[in-house]
């Protein structure tokens, strides 16, 4: 076909991917799933000093329908896991998940009967963030890493089998 053959195989789709990826990555709207202590650092990330809006991400939406990335900040208990999952299911695709803090990533210091030992047991996670709590800078680190993932994702299949990234 005309244009495809003139420009080379896959040229258009890759260019489109790049364009859409660029647009997506710079307008990520987070859904702050603030559960416990890490949520305080998540709030700090939005404060005048750290100013999350430098990354085009200050539009915290508490409605899953309007958000692209869920930041799970805090300890997820078994009771809460169902709620987290339900909210994740309500998010429109494409959607990404950041596990913020040791608790969300692995259960952290809470080896007990009621804490889920890592949210990857019931959610696909894109970036794990180390720290208890991660400092806001580390959260930004995670967000920038996520932006890289988003940039590389394709239009049709946004989750193109990326391994989760761990930032620390």
């Amino acid at each position: 076909m005309g244009l495809e053959s003139a420009l080379g195989e896959g040229y258009l789709t890759t260019q489109l991917d790049a364009l859409v990826g660029w647009a997506r990555k710079n307008s990520l709207w987070p859904m702050p799933m603030g559960l416990s202590c890490c949520a305080i650092e998540l709030m700090s990330a939005g404060d005048p000093r750290h100013d999350i809006s430098r990354f085009g991400m200050e539009v915290m939406r508490f409605s899953p329908r309007q958000s692209d990335v869920m930041i799970v900040a805090g300890t997820v208990t078994y009771k809460m896991a169902h709620v987290v999952r339900k909210i994740y299911d309500q998010m429109a695709e494409p959607r990404w998940v950041i596990a913020m803090g040791a608790c969300a990533s692995s259960g952290g210091m809470f080896r007990s009967y009621s804490v889920v030992q890592g949210i990857d047991q019931f959610l696909p996670v894109d970036v794990f963030t180390a720290g208890c709590p991660p400092r806001p800078e580390n959260l930004f680190n995670a967000l920038i890493k996520l932006q890289e993932i988003v940039q590389q994702s394709s239009v049709l299949d946004y989750r193109n089998s990326n391994e989760p990234i761990i930032v620390s």
């Binding site: 896991a81 080896r111 007990s112």
Partner: peptide, 29 residues
């Protein structure tokens, strides 16, 4: 604290710290 359908009483000494597997269900991945 615990869900209504939970069967055990976790602070009893005979309840293990890490809980009984399957006592609290998780959503599917």
């Amino acid at each position: 604290y615990m869900p209504e359908d939970f069967e055990y009483h976790p602070l009893r000494k005979d309840y293990p710290l890490m809980g009984i597997p399957g006592a609290l269900p998780l959503p599917k991945r």
